[in-house]
């Protein structure tokens, strides 16, 4: 269980970095985008991750007025965040093929 959730957390972190690198988003928007991708995570689970990514200085949050009125916290990627996303991308490529192959072999 612990290992499984650790693994998922790491992957979710990478996905969040990927979304933020494409556009500046606020919390709710990010949760929606993850769901649109088919990643069915509990909506609340993004906030502890956003806090951690800020602490690690991979993303940066800024309170701004939104077009519809209220203050919202918008997130952007930092330089360190870009690097971290690159590393995640490489690691993922590295894992994806062998794991897929392995699972396909089992199916046969």
């Amino acid at each position: 269980m612990a290992i499984r959730s650790q693994l998922l957390k790491g992957i979710l972190e990478g996905c969040i970095l990927a979304i933020i690198s494409k556009e500046t988003v606020y919390g709710y928007e990010l949760a929606m985008k993850l769901q649109d991708q088919g990643l069915d995570v509990s909506e609340g689970s993004i906030y502890p991750i956003l806090l951690r990514l800020q602490k690690e200085k991979l993303i940066q949050g800024e309170m701004r007025k939104s077009p519809s009125g209220p203050n919202r916290k918008y997130y952007t990627l930092t330089d360190a965040g870009e690097e971290s996303l690159e590393t995640f991308r490489k690691n993922w490529e590295y894992l994806k093929k062998p794991v897929d192959q392995l699972l396909d072999e089992e199916d046969v």
Partner: peptide, 13 residues
């Protein structure tokens, strides 16, 4: 600051 910001995000959500 961080505490109040995350509390506001949760409230908005």
């Amino acid at each position: 600051a961080e505490t109040e910001e995350v509390l506001m995000e949760l409230l908005d959500h």
